[in-house]
Simulated scan of single mutants.
Amino acid sequence: MDRAMTNVNFQLHCDNFGRLVLTDAEGQRHEGVTPVRAFPIAAPDEGLSLINFEGHEVGWVERIADLPPAIRDVIESDLRSRDFVPEIARISEVSSFACPSTWQVETDRGAAELRLKGEEDIRRLSQTRLLIADANGIQFLVRDLSKLDKQSRKLLDRFL
């Protein structure tokens, strides 16, 4: 059964197959819609484009928090199923201070191992925020350097 949800500029519902369907203000129906964050790391809750299966934007959401709860839940569920950016809470061990090196880290999703190919794979997003790309293409986020424990900051400083 379809679950209908309404926003000022469009209607959005999830069909029987779990696909998002958007009906715009003119009544045009767009099936297989995918929500895409404009700024997934810097501002994940602001700027969300709704893209149809052909890659065209069919809707825009300024702030996810402003959506009605039912629409917000469906969109956030879809985003969670596709977004995978573990947040590093602690760096337990680094195999070497020369690259490539293997890191043992604790993330918000559990323990993980990442392989750093080079120091250029650590990207500073702001004074306190880093994005670390491992050799397998997984992006790890350090949301706030100042919140890492002393040992983690000391290990990380060797690469910055």
Results as ranks from 00 to 15, higher is better:
F39Q: 10
G137Y: 06
V36Y: 00
Q11V: 07
P68Q: 12
T6P: 00
P100V: 04
S101E: 04
L156E: 06
S126V: 05
K154P: 03
R123F: 09
L145H: 09
G55I: 04
M5Y: 03
P35H: 04
T128W: 08
L160C: 02
A135N: 07
S49T: 09
M5H: 06
A4W: 13
T34D: 07
D149E: 09
D2W: 14
M1G: 04
L125W: 05
L116E: 09
L156N: 06
V58G: 12
G137T: 03
F17G: 05
E106Q: 12
E46V: 11
I75T: 00
A43T: 06
A89S: 13
Q127T: 06
P100E: 05
E93N: 14
D45V: 05
Q11I: 07
T102S: 10
R115H: 11
D108C: 00
L130N: 02
Q11T: 09
C14W: 02
V33G: 01
G32N: 02
T102W: 03
G137F: 07
V21C: 02
F84H: 15
A43Y: 12
E120C: 07
F17M: 12
R19K: 13
D121E: 09
T102L: 08
I64S: 00
E57Q: 15
L125F: 08
R72G: 00
R115F: 08
F39I: 03
E93H: 15
E76A: 07
F140Q: 07
K117V: 09
A38N: 08
F53Y: 15
R19G: 05
R90A: 08
T102N: 08
I64H: 01
E31C: 14
R143S: 10
Q139M: 11
E57N: 14
G27M: 05
K147C: 10
P68N: 13
S95W: 06
T6E: 13
V94G: 07
A25Q: 13
L131V: 09
Q104S: 14
Q11K: 15
K154M: 09
M5R: 06
L148K: 01
M5P: 00
Q104P: 04
P100L: 06
F39G: 04
S146R: 15
D2N: 12
E106A: 08
R63A: 11
S101M: 10
E113R: 15
R124Q: 11
F39R: 14
G27S: 03
M5W: 01
N9D: 15
K147F: 10
F53I: 11
E57D: 10
S92H: 14
V8L: 14
D2E: 13
L148M: 02
S126R: 01
